[in-house]
Design a protein around this nucleic acid. Structure first.
Lengths: 162, 162
DNA sequence: CTTTCGAATTATAATAATTACAATCAAATA
DNA sequence: TATTTGATTGTAATTATTATAATTCGAAAG
């Protein structure tokens, strides 16, 4: 964990940015919640526990910066907020997502899967691919088994969808 | 063109919704701009030309309704606004997009391409896929040829997301 | 060690997208 | 015709995000 912060620090410094305490706290929160898909507001609240004096605008700016450095990916699942997802170590492509339409859970797929598709697209459309976003919407394995077992118990979603 | 409106009308009626003049004007605008990826605001301005008395809230509501009926797909390219994309006639899956990081153009891919990938995902993750979103970010064929022509014009290829 | 300078941060204000609200209107029904 | 129901309107409210201006911090120079 420690060396990942070091690495990010070097990335920042290579572009003459600094790893300020606020930025460090933000990165720490992201590392500790690698599995989740936090919104800027979520990150803000969590960082505040470590560094209560931080401002929301700083969190936005830090996330923006980390996005430019490709440390995090900004993603939108259509619920009105942007979420920030830490890129896996050594990953050269953005991972994919499975969004459950019933419980709201978001699972990740680390495997590439798109290699062939990308070759086809680059050839047929003469489009130089730099990045991709692939999200499947459907029913996760948890909800499938629940559904067959207990008919339809209203399940609260993970995200507070306004 | 006329029969597509008829079809949408029937879809509405089958769920006991009505094709009101405002809804009809909105659908018409969508049909006339099938190639584009309009935001709610864009649609509003265009519909106003046909039906000046329409309100923005009605446009939002109509688009929401059409989205539920799967007549349009709501999509977000990360620029802060939702865009509404008419589903091709007879299409049973949402089409894919190529977003150019240089000129901002958005091209569409109608071919499926994901059949194999979806089989793998459904099997390996026991995830029942209902819908998908696939977007490639990169450089479109137009910008590629421009780039090679005027190779050393601007070194800056940074993509300002806003 | 002190001064200086520029980047970073803060609180707050502004903007932009979207949704909620309350009154009005229109078609459908009795 | 009177009543009910659903749709629309303009506006207000809410939410996410970005811009601003003043302040602080930290490294480099003296």
């Amino acid at each position: 964990m420690e060396h990942r912060i070091e690495k990010i620090k070097k990335q920042l410094q290579s572009q003459s940015y600094k790893l300020t305490p606020q930025r460090e706290a933000t990165v720490l929160v992201l590392l500790e919640h690698e599995e989740d898909h936090l919104s800027a507001e979520d990150v803000y609240l969590l960082v505040k526990e470590k560094a209560p004096e931080i401002g929301l605008a700083t969190v936005y700016r830090t996330l923006e910066l980390l996005n430019e450095l490709e440390v995090v990916d900004k993603i939108n699942f259509g619920d009105g907020v942007s979420r920030y997802d830490l890129r896996k170590e050594g990953a050269n492509h953005f991972h994919h997502h499975l969004v459950c339409m019933e419980c709201g859970a978001v699972d990740e797929i680390q495997e590439d899967l798109l290699g062939d598709v990308e070759s086809i697209v680059e050839r047929d459309f003469q489009f130089k691919i730099k990045d991709h976003r692939l999200t499947f919407h459907g029913v996760c394995h948890r909800c499938q088994t629940e559904d067959t077992a207990a008919a339809s118990e209203t399940e609260e979603t993970e995200y507070s969808s306004k």
